[in-house]
């Protein structure tokens, strides 16, 4: 098992960084005019970085625990593997 929250954190860190850099350094007047004066890349980039931080914090504070396969769970799974009509 792996933790999807870390993958989301990494993906949005990457996307957020790229968009923030594009927004901060490469925004043209045309881009601004199209969006009614908003620097879309910059704001979305910052938003994504915050989102990534939240995922990272969540995954760090509440790490994934390995599911314990207790005896009762094994017993419950028994019939389902034999066929569709355990009754």
């Amino acid at each position: 098992m792996f933790d999807l929250r870390w993958i989301l954190a990494m993906l949005f860190t990457l996307y957020g960084t790229v968009l923030t850099v594009l927004g901060a350094a490469f925004t043209t007047d045309l881009d601004l005019a199209r969006a009614g004066g908003v620097n879309v890349n910059l704001w979305v980039g910052i938003g994504m970085l915050i989102g990534a931080a939240l995922f990272g914090t969540w995954a760090g504070l509440r790490p994934l625990r390995l599911p314990e396969r207790s005896g009762t769970e094994q017993a419950e799974q028994g019939p389902t593997e034999q066929g569709p009509t355990p009754s």
Binding site: Y15, V18, L19, L22, G23, F26, T27, T28, D31, R34, A35, V40, N41, V44, G45
Partner: peptide, 9 residues
């Protein structure tokens, strides 16, 4: 509405 970058997303 969207500029390059956000367009990719």
């Amino acid at each position: 509405l969207l500029p390059t970058g956000m367009l990719g997303v």
